[in-house]
Amino acid sequence: MNGILNRETLVKWAPLIVLFILILFFTVLEPRFFSVRNLARIAISSAPALMVAIGVTFIIIMGSIDLSMEGTVSVSAVVFAFAFLALGGTILSWAWLALPLAVLVGAAIGFLNGLVHVKLKVPSFMASLAMGFVGTGFALLLTGGDRIRVEDEVFRGLLTERWLGFPVMVYVALAFLLIGWFIQSRTALGRNFYAVGGGEELAHASGLNVNRLRIMGFMLAGVFYAVGALLAVGRIGIAETATGNNFMFMSITSVVVGGTALWGGVGGVWNTLVGVLIVNVIGNGMVVIGLPGYVQDGVLGLLVIIAVVLSTDRKSVSFVK
């Protein structure tokens, strides 16, 4: 009993401890790491990733997985950019409508995703992977491989306008983190995610419409991916098919490293915040102390495996596919 308690305590606090150790480690090696400038840099690269990771957190809490984020982000970004330019090209005109439109597109893709998963009874990792491929393909079809520049100064204010040293997009991301936290802890939807993740058959037996819940989960995830797409476009001022690249690996890594178990029922958006920061601190820190950036993917790969192994209760899982 004592052993289990220890493991649980360790698993609960390990991510935060790892984050502090990493920050300490990089600061000792290179004090510039802890400057406001550099912290802002970390926050900027974390903001879009955090949105996408929060989206997939809800799905993982349900015990499912969503691998469609790259396609969803690309499509939302591209549709946003086209609509934004077509409607006037500045937030101060009707072009602001492109913002909610992008979010709707994200929700629609999530809805399709959920439908394929639930109605065709296809495991979510494969349904969503395939939908992700369709999404990337659709974005490619829309752009024909071109990049679309979004140069409106008001919209780019997400990056250029700074409060207390941090750009607006960081505060936007924090606001959506709070929304995610509200959904997770204060709504029936959030509680039901945990119920399904904790034991689907039980949740079903207690009268929950699990299929409907799953579809809503994927829609909610799609909304957060779209917000991530908007921040990603705000960050570099370009929407293209490649806007979604690398979000899959980054977000799954972040969620798992943050301590949300792949088996569902455990973790939440705060874990994901810690996970995203760990991933981005490692990425930034390695560059700051002079290591080549590409080591990052390898290190993250190892980290994911350690995190999943640590969070797996080996007594309750007999085999995995």
């Binding site: 990792f125 799954i252 798992v256 590409y294 993250l300």
Partner: peptide, 25 residues
């Protein structure tokens, strides 16, 4: 996947990350 009980879509994604890093290096 089999010994550490990490589902294959995650373990292979992670190993793929390592392979990608190695290729870059």
């Amino acid at each position: 996947t089999t010994k550490l009980l990490v589902p294959s879509f995650v373990s292979t994604l992670a190993v793929g990350g390592v392979a990608y890093s190695s290729a870059q290096y």
